[in-house]
Design a protein around this nucleic acid. Structure first.
Lengths: 149, 149
DNA sequence: ATCCTATCTGCGATTTATTGTCAATTGGTT
DNA sequence: AACCAATTGACAATAAATCGCAGATAGGAT
């Protein structure tokens, strides 16, 4: 998504376009894969001297609540964020290099419904992460401990 | 799973059966749903005076690596653990009360394979959590912020 | 252009989950 | 009974994330 469109969306939602917020959004637009608050901070602190980590956290969480970005919780990795783009998808997490790749996969065609013992749950969403090794990484013993099936 | 069988399994893997470890395993056996390290600690500290939280963490992680228990990372919830029972399943997380329910659901019949741009990933596992509200909880505004789709 | 105020930010301190170190203890094998 | 590697407890140490608050500022109103 182009940065321009993102900025417009953010302003439409009633958020002010502060330099910090611009920098954060810009970092999100630039990154190929989901990034953590810390990574965003590392990128923008050079540009905006004096920017605080709090601001990054605050904004990412705020925008996650507003649905502008999506928070990705993968195992014991730190939370990562990506811009909410139109199509629903999930992620592949490399257990060796810890990079996250978007994969155009969702096993559910229709909204999920869940019932256990005739007891229905109200489902509002789901998260799916696929674990393994990317093409640049070889499986190693130390890394396989995280594997969940 | 009966506690006896679990203790046997643990000993077979070469772990000593210390009182602390017995207590932790017992707590896992007793709980209906996945529990966090803190919750386990709260349960056993009354029984074994002087037990440290460290021990609980160490054991849960150790047993997670050994495949005796499974670690469940759901959103920004704390890590929870459950005994590794035979059948593969996933979890429903209530956004209001934060309880976790096991659901006998897995959308994948066969091992997943993932390829993006003709680039194949080696898949070793996956995690799926379904979010929503359990039958005892009503959706509330403050709680819906966590929703992920 | 200036003003005004609700929104935002930076700072410093804090919380909370989790891990590391290491000496002392102990399970269970001999 | 003795031995020793596995295990534990105490304490310190991280690291991610949050909080409270005083000062700054975006951007609509004038």
């Amino acid at each position: 998504m182009e940065e321009r469109a993102v900025l417009d969306m953010v302003r439409q939602r009633g958020y002010r376009l502060t330099p910090q917020r611009r920098a954060i959004l810009s970092a999100l637009c630039r990154s190929q894969s989901p990034v953590s608050a810390g990574e965003v901070y590392d990128q923008i602190k050079h540009l905006l001297a004096g920017t605080s980590v709090d601001t990054v956290y605050r904004n990412l969480n705020q925008m996650a609540e507003a649905g502008i970005v999506v928070a990705i919780h993968a195992g014991r990795e730190v939370v990562r964020f990506e811009l909410q783009v139109g199509d629903h998808h999930h992620h592949f997490v490399c257990l060796a290099c810890h990079r996250i790749f978007c994969i155009p996969l969702c096993p559910f065609e229709a909204p999920v419904s869940v019932a256990v013992d005739g007891h229905a749950f109200k489902v509002t969403g789901h998260s799916l992460e696929v674990y393994g090794y990317c093409s640049q990484c070889e499986p190693s013993e130390e890394a396989t401990s995280d594997v969940r099936v």
